[in-house]
Amino acid sequence: MSRPVRYAICILVALIFVLPLLAMVVIAFTPRESILDDGASLWSGDWTLANFSGLFGQFPVWRWFGNALLVASLTTALSVVVNLLGGYALAKLRFRGRSTVLLVVLGTLVVPVQVVMIPQFELVARLGLVGFFWAVILPSASTALGLFLARQFFIDFPDEIVEAARVDGCTTLQAFRRVVVPNARPLVAVMTLLAFMAQWNDFLWPLITLRDPDLYTLPVALRLLQTAYDNDYGGIMAMALLSSLPLVLMFVVLQRYFVAGISRSGIR
């Protein structure tokens, strides 16, 4: 393929891929009257901030932003620790039942969340977690994907490093803490991004388990808007933009580490 052709294809692909995002941004700034009169359009020419000011008047946006940040951060921290430990054990330690554990973990990967939602809720409620952020944090702290990623990463991890630490008199756990974790930074980067993303974007589970407007997270507002009677595309897109922006920024900044992390995390 010649270079100009290659370039042209890239531009075409980029245009197609950017269209939905562009639509979100443009409509978020389009006045409601304009959408009502002429339909949603990428070049209506009218601009307004009214969609955003409307949101700030309707929801405690900052508080929900803070809640989302808190919940996603705690989940991520817990999830990274738990999955690092588990993944390492599955990859590097020999014990009876290892393959069974791996199979069970992989099995949970194929469970559709909607199917277990009712029993899961009943459980969370019986544990007295409803109304606590923990109701959201604990069930999503251990993800099969995270554990699997960690295992794949550690399988390729050089045994020599660990053995060296063992010879220096470290226990398994000490060796893990002192030499394994510091060498697992790319993995941690990937796991952090994936876990944070998943938790930040969740809306249905926080809505039913937190059950209090003081505890709601930002994407819940999106659900509230989406199910309102009037299809207020301007308001919905403004909220979609607000709730996506933190992740988009985070991703643009961390993208390099993300790719590097994946290339070393053994999914390949």
Partner: peptide, 21 residues
């Protein structure tokens, strides 16, 4: 050591996923 390291994970998966399943 292995079971110890897996325990938090297995506990969470067992309680919040396998149980409901």
């Amino acid at each position: 050591a292995a079971w110890g390291m897996l325990a938090p994970n297995l506990l969470l998966i067992g309680v919040f996923l396998a149980g409901p399943l």
